[in-house]
Amino acid sequence: MSNTTVVQTRRRSISDIDLRAVAPFVALAVLFGFGAMVNPNFLGLDNLTNVVTRSAFIAIIAVGATFVISAGGLDLSVGSMSAFVAGTMILFLNSGAVSGDTGMIATAMLLALATGALCGLANGLITTLGRIEPFIVTLGTMGIFRALTIYLAEGGSIAIKSQELRAAYRPIYFSDVLGVPIPVIMILVVAALGAFILYRTRFGRHVTAVGSNEEVARYSGISVNRVRTLTYVIQGVCVAIAVLIYVPRLGAATATTGLLWELQAITAVVIGGTALRGGVGRIWGTICGALILELVGNIMVLSDLVSEYLIGAVQGSIIIIAMLIQRSLGRR
């Protein structure tokens, strides 16, 4: 008996390295090598800082998506929601409701966070109370948020009118602390908070349990609907945080703001090793996934291998390939 136990332990310690957890980081390293080969400028500090900064929107939204997907849900509305939250935020900035640039921006930020949370709450409540597939609900709200944005913009774009306000808000995206751009700091803060909530709190444990087996969670006295709804609220807040650093970048929201961000966010989550079926969430893997997506785009721009107009096609292929790899790893 003791003999077989020893054999078992030894065999396990080798296969114990979870390939799904390591794979995204390996892929990231491979991309670094590849990027360095195609263009010598790739490994420059400027380029890499730029890449990480640009990945901030998707990375932050994808942290929220990690919660939703871990709990067995799905949110297709994040791109449209980003446009809607950005649009309403800029309209408020233009309203001049609060005097003083700092006070105005701070109030607008709080408003954006509240709007995001409410949009997420709507998704969550319709999904849980209405007992409708999250795929359908968020497909619907995707259309709603997008149309509302276009309606508010009257078919054009919503831009920050006041030049002073624009100048006052700009540093949130463009400045840095000790050389680290603020969007990068935001990624780290959001991911660290997300990881803490998912791995160290009771709510996080319940998210995993609900995604793993809803019935067991219910019989364990976990309020499944509450947990599910809260994951959508977290998603909404993450979208709003991404908007907070998106608005100062361009100072405007248009009909195409956040287009296909849902594809990128879900791809980042899947590449990161989170199971699309729910029950496993990997926050840092998700961040890694968002970086991979941005690096692929960057390499496409820096090289002549594939036209950068095909970036959506490449991202679409990546999510399909990532799913195929996940499946084959799961079968082992």
Partner: peptide, 23 residues
């Protein structure tokens, strides 16, 4: 719940918390 370990399953819904409110 298949994806979590034995201890997490035993305490599902009744987790033991540290004084700081973490698992």
């Amino acid at each position: 719940a298949d994806n979590v370990d034995t201890a997490a399953n035993l305490y599902l819904g009744r987790e033991i918390m540290t004084p700081w409110g973490t698992l």
